[in-house]
Computed example of a mutant assay.
Amino acid sequence: MFVKAIERVSEFTRPIHIITRLYNQAEIRPGAATLFFINENGDAITCKHVADLIVNVGAIQQHYARFMAEYRKVLREPQHDYLRQRLEDQFNMKLGTVIGQKFDFINCFESLSQIHVTYHPKYDLALLRFEGTGQKLFQRPAEFVADGASAKPGKSLCRLGYPFAEYTNFRYNSDLDDIEWVRTHNQVTPSFPIDGIVTRYIADESGTPFAIEMSTPGLVGQSGGPLFDTEGTVYGMQQSTRHLHMGFDMVNHDVWVGGTHRAKISNHPFLHVGVCISADIIKEFLRQHNVKFYTKKAFKENLN
């Protein structure tokens, strides 16, 4: 049902590759997020929580550099372990603290020089305005539904994003004490669609509908990806997943396990549903910042 739509949406949807280095851990953690382009100028949108990572990368690197500068001063001191612990407390360095990140915007521009980020004042939405040189590597911009109210409960919609970070083109550079990209390994992260039906609109504390709830979850890495119909018309942007307690709790329930023995199990099931910022919220945000975008009349499904 969404085959042609996915091909169309893939022309303006792109992955953001993110590698993360954690304090006192040797392993580099790969991840991904999603953005999509809204005009031929190279303006794109994604989630605010994704844009935060981009904005904060310099501050994280500088913080770690200051810590290491102080640490090198006490490296050969007799009380090295004690002094290191004091520095770790001072700089809030503990197991799992992010000390470095790198980003790669895949198939967006031949050369990227700068990114300007504008946050929505209330919702998990951000505008990315790219400055680059050379050829733009996306084929077409998104087209938004003209009237977001057409996303009624029961309507089938799909999301596209990059939840599975399968690329391996990164390494730790011991000479620089930093992580970096390389061009000799797999650089591809496959896109992944997930469809569902609209269940309801979600309103904020003022009663304003701002998001579409979907019957299926959005996956980590799909944040910032488009929500679209069978023609590829965009109805919103994947933001998050809600976990709704279903109330079918079982505590110490007696069951057969593997057909060989009985055991006591407990289960507290949740329904995982996707939350997508609506196209109407996105369009109003773009209008406020005089950003060009395109709309398309909603595809009228054959109800016969």
Rank of each mutant, 00 (worst) to 15 (best):
F2E: 00
R8F: 06
T13K: 00
P15Q: 03
I16Y: 00
R21E: 14
F36R: 00
E40K: 06
N41K: 08
N41T: 02
G42P: 14
D43C: 03
C47A: 04
H49K: 03
V50I: 03
A51M: 05
L53Y: 06
L53Q: 09
I54N: 13
Q61R: 15
H63P: 10
M68Q: 13
E70T: 06
K73I: 15
Q79P: 09
L83D: 03
R84D: 12
E88Y: 08
M93I: 04
I99A: 07
G100R: 02
Q101W: 12
K102G: 03
N107V: 03
E110N: 02
Y123W: 09
E131V: 08
G132H: 03
G132D: 04
Q139Y: 14
K152W: 13
K155N: 09
A165G: 05
N173M: 09
N173P: 08
S174D: 10
D175F: 07
L176Q: 11
V188S: 11
P190Q: 07
V198A: 09
Y201K: 14
A203C: 15
S206C: 13
A211Q: 01
I212E: 01
M214R: 02
G218P: 01
G221A: 03
G225S: 00
T230M: 13
R242N: 12
H243N: 08
L244A: 14
G247S: 11
S266P: 05
S266N: 07
N267M: 06
I277R: 02
F285D: 00
F285N: 01
Q288Y: 11
Q288E: 14
H289P: 08
N290A: 12
K296D: 08
